[in-house]
Amino acid sequence: MAGSDDGRLTVDDLVAWMFRFDERIAAEADRLTALDSAIGDADHGTNIARGTGAVRKRLADAPPDDAGALLKSSGMALVSTVGGASGSLYGTLFLEMAKSVGPTPELDTAGLADAFRAGVAGVVARGRAEPGDKTMVDALQPAAEALSAAAEGGRPIVESLREAAAAAALGRDATIPLVARKGRASYLGERSADHLDPGATSAAILVQALADARSERIG
């Protein structure tokens, strides 16, 4: 029900999430690329923006009927357009979430928390990165934990998503002193410390975009 916190995440909310993600990535693309330029290969913003643009176009052209189909369609668009490790990892996040939710019209906090945890587990398995390796996992894992804790505590979905976004932001900022152990930044060794990780930064944007998109529906 629009206009109140009905505790649900509908297909429209998920579409709004993807659109918001695309807007935020487009706005932050240059900054993401600048972060990547310091410790990677200077293309993270460009690549992610190409992918979120493709997701937006795909969802606008062929709006999926259920949450699982939407997440799968978004994941496939990311895998096939982003390239690099990010494409495969963001794609895996969405494809694993899609498998977890299945053909349902809407999710509650617990369903979303389960799906997000499954997605993050997929990212960890595919990328073989642990928390603390200075990767997107450093933002995603705390967000997944915050979401699960909120679901267990029976908190409303908007509040749960705000907590997840705050946890992702903290995890993102905690990558600054870390020495990278995975991905291209790892080649720099100690020189990768004192830099914000671009993957954790875009992952925090992803979580924030969901919190923003869902809280806007409340008005």
């Binding site: 200077a42 293309d43 096939s80 390239g83 495969s88």
Partner: peptide, 12 residues
């Protein structure tokens, strides 16, 4: 062929 300095994708 991937984008410049970016891996190609599984569908390719």
């Amino acid at each position: 062929a991937g984008e410049v300095f970016t891996s190609p994708t599984p569908d390719q």
